[in-house]
Amino acid sequence: MSDAAPVRSHINVRTEAPATRLALILVAVVFLALFLLAPLGVVFTQTLQKGFGAFAKALQDDDAISAIELTLLVAAIAVPVNLVFGLAASWSIAKFSFPGKSLLITLIDLPFSVSPVVSGLVYVLVFGAQGVFGDWLGAHDIEIIFAVPGIVLATIFVTFPFIARELIPLMQEQGTVEEEAALTLGASGFHTFVAVTLPNIKWGLLYGLLLCNARAMGEFGAVSVVSGHIRGLTNTIPLQVEILYNEYNSVAAFALAALLASLALVTLGLKTLLEWRHGDALTGRARRRQ
């Protein structure tokens, strides 16, 4: 009803010019493709270069199978153990107040700031032949370093923060109100935990489990130091990958690598799904992660 002509639309004050945007997007995409996607792609092209048959055969090699079994064993021990720790730590930290909390949290974060090699080193210093318990262990014929127990210990060290770090901010954010309500209704502590707390944290817990497992199966540096590299006995998948690669057996090396890479992709995929569907259930986590 007005005679005024339609208005020429202005440049949006909230974003850059289209050309700038395009340029930035290109830079970002190219950078990511070169530095992140290419290495991922190489894993699969390298292992399939002699065809799928060669890839499958490599996975059926005895040493490969031992490596897979050992990796699964280590993860099967480390992850549940760390799960219990994660639940206990986050329960005590998030639902109660006591002095020294930030110190405790810093301690839990410790493995993230320590080089994997150093993580392995400290266990050698404790359990190695010249370590603190070296003589005692030797006398009782117990092998930790250069044997499976050492690998398990080192893996536990490196992966224990994951679950706790996911759960602590999440549970802190959720507070204690629901648990207190359950208690007033007569529920026991354990029942409260199972019926009230767990469902609230289930997605964060799942996420932490995924990360913990991925790291447990993929850990290299720490395990390499404590392992002894004995084929068929003390080699996890990453260690076996190293041996095969150094022998120029790239198909086999990348075959095992492809297994781990697929695990990584599954982890990433599930993580994305979780964040997408249940992003709000994961907040409190902030996106600070190491």
Partner: peptide, 15 residues
């Protein structure tokens, strides 16, 4: 972007 977090270091190394 999270790939370096998720991918085992040995795999990244040989790739």
């Amino acid at each position: 972007v999270d790939l370096p977090f998720a991918l085992p270091t040995a795999v990244a190394g040989i790739s």
